[in-house]
């Protein structure tokens, strides 16, 4: 149990510290690298909660997929020029406000509802079955319609993006 708390502490410190690094680096590629570290640490927290499917999806989708595309785009930016340009940090007041709002919301959930941080001592699904099957059943049997609607929405967005990109090139 002590080991779990210890691991949680290390992972959350890594996640928070690399989150700070993401917004303080001037070099965009370094920011992306720190974001990858942060995502890894969050994945570790999932694993600590015995949500191994979520951990795997976090690594495959965010670290292995989306961040690669991030890097792909960022690499094409000319760093030397970008460093001399003004940074997009003029809306810091708005940013601070949003962050404060989020913090208040989180604090409200944690302290008032009590349930929020009372993580179950036992995993909700038995370890032998694993939660991959449980998630699959929930998504494709209990919540079939919402999942299909959401995926249709994503498909429409994807087709829209392709059409917009095509128009630009023609």
């Amino acid at each position: 149990m002590l080991l779990t708390y210890f691991a949680f502490g290390i992972l959350s410190v890594i996640a928070l510290a690399s989150g700070v690094m993401v917004i303080t680096r001037r070099n965009a590629v370094h920011s992306v690298i720190w974001l990858i570290v942060a995502l890894f640490a969050v994945g570790g927290v999932y694993l600590l909660q015995q949500a191994e499917f979520l951990f795997a999806v976090q690594i495959i989708l965010y670290v292995g997929g989306i961040m690669v595309l991030f890097l792909f785009v960022v690499m094409l930016v000319n760093i030397d020029v970008a460093l001399k340009q003004a940074q997009f940090s003029r809306q810091w007041l708005l940013g601070v406000l949003t962050a404060a709002l989020l913090a208040v919301l989180l604090a409200y959930v944690v302290y008032n509802h009590g349930q929020g941080l009372n993580l179950p001592a036992q995993p909700l699904v038995s370890m032998r079955q694993g939660n991959t099957q449980a998630i699959g059943q929930a998504l494709y049997q209990n919540y079939m319609l919402p999942v299909e609607i959401a995926s249709l929405l994503l498909l429409v967005a994807m087709v829209g993006a392709v059409i917009m990109a095509k128009r630009k090139f023609e």
């Binding site: 590629v29 191994e52 499917f53 795997a56 690669v68 690499m75 991959t132």
Partner: peptide, 25 residues
């Protein structure tokens, strides 16, 4: 032998791309 073996393989092997992309950049 872990119960998400194949997902683990897909995830970790997709990290190898960072070696190439960061090395090239």
């Amino acid at each position: 032998d872990i119960n998400i073996g194949l997902l683990f393989i897909l995830g970790v092997s997709s990290l190898g791309i960072y070696g190439i992309i960061l090395g090239g950049w």
